[in-house]
Amino acid sequence: MEFLWHSLMDPLRFAFMQRSLLVAVAVGILCAVVGSYLLVQSMALLGDAISHSLLPGLALAYMFGLNLFVGAFVAGVLSALLIQWIRSASPIKADAAMGIVFSAFFALGIVLITLIQRRARIDLNHFLFGNILGVSAADVLTVVAIALLVLALVALFFKELTFYSFDPLGAKAAGLPTAQLGWGLMVLTSLTLVASMKAVGVLLVLAMLITPAATAYLLVPQLQQVMLLGSLFGVSASLIGMYASYYLNIASGPAIVLVASFWFGLAFLGRVLGKVFMHSR
């Protein structure tokens, strides 16, 4: 017991671990809450599309000396606008529009980063896979501010967003502004992905957006319960992955995602075995 306590507390002597802890908690909660809406709408690919679309925004912001979070957010919103425009102005389906946009944006981001690397030393891995152990005090403030803003908006429009997510046609018939709710959810998704990219990177952020919520979805029936339990899974995955990264000297983003995937695997196996047991009685 003493060894476990020492293992938990010893890394917290360092300021970078304290900053990482705050970001881990914020990202774990934020991804689970917003991801729950994408999950019930079967819109997980939207998160993938926007996350890949962040890369050119990051690259351009770096080139012009701007805030990386701002560049990533602008790119995310622009990709969402393009997806919606393609869907509304052509017979192209939503999944195809998402695939077209995110692959184009991601390719543009790789090209821009390649150009940057010709004149400056830049670590592409931190963009792609995250580096939660390297967050600055300014990063912590930005992530926490985004998390509080998104969670406040979700709480304020919880009934409307829930109605729209489960029954968009019914919400429209009831007089709700479904177009604005759809755009709002895209903006919330973009903000969540921007806040999470430092922790797990643009390639793995979809896992944190969907996996904790999906794990909770297997275990509890109500959306509020999915959000709460998913937050616990998200926070625990972030913290355990962060400690694994510290002690094993491995990349933080993949470590966090592997823990989240492990929780999902346990929940899935438990559900399957539970059904087998019930049928065998």
Rank of each mutant, 00 (worst) to 15 (best):
110 I>K: 09
8 L>E: 07
59 A>K: 12
76 G>W: 07
8 L>K: 02
280 S>N: 06
70 V>F: 15
102 F>M: 14
36 S>H: 10
100 I>M: 07
32 A>P: 03
166 F>S: 01
260 A>P: 08
180 Q>A: 15
269 L>Y: 11
114 T>G: 13
174 A>S: 14
158 F>Q: 05
246 Y>N: 04
234 G>H: 05
132 I>R: 11
45 L>Y: 12
247 Y>Q: 02
249 N>M: 12
225 Q>V: 00
56 P>Q: 13
206 L>N: 10
249 N>S: 15
207 A>C: 13
121 R>S: 15
131 N>R: 14
272 V>Q: 09
22 L>H: 01
124 L>M: 13
203 L>E: 08
108 L>M: 14
185 L>W: 06
116 I>A: 08
176 L>H: 06
1 M>D: 05
144 V>C: 03
106 F>A: 04
30 L>R: 02
158 F>V: 00
185 L>G: 04
244 A>R: 02
35 G>Y: 09
46 L>K: 05
179 A>N: 07
172 K>C: 05
112 L>N: 13
117 Q>M: 12
110 I>E: 15
134 G>W: 05
153 L>T: 01
280 S>A: 12
44 A>D: 01
278 M>T: 10
55 L>G: 05
36 S>V: 07
50 I>S: 02
197 M>P: 12
227 M>P: 02
232 L>T: 04
213 A>D: 12
2 E>M: 14
60 L>M: 12
4 L>T: 13
190 S>Y: 01
65 G>I: 08
24 A>D: 11
127 F>H: 01
101 V>E: 05
204 L>D: 06
123 D>V: 04
187 V>L: 08
101 V>G: 03
168 P>M: 08
109 G>M: 04
200 V>Q: 10
57 G>R: 00
35 G>V: 03
71 G>N: 02
103 S>L: 03
217 Y>R: 15
276 V>M: 12
99 G>V: 02
211 T>P: 01
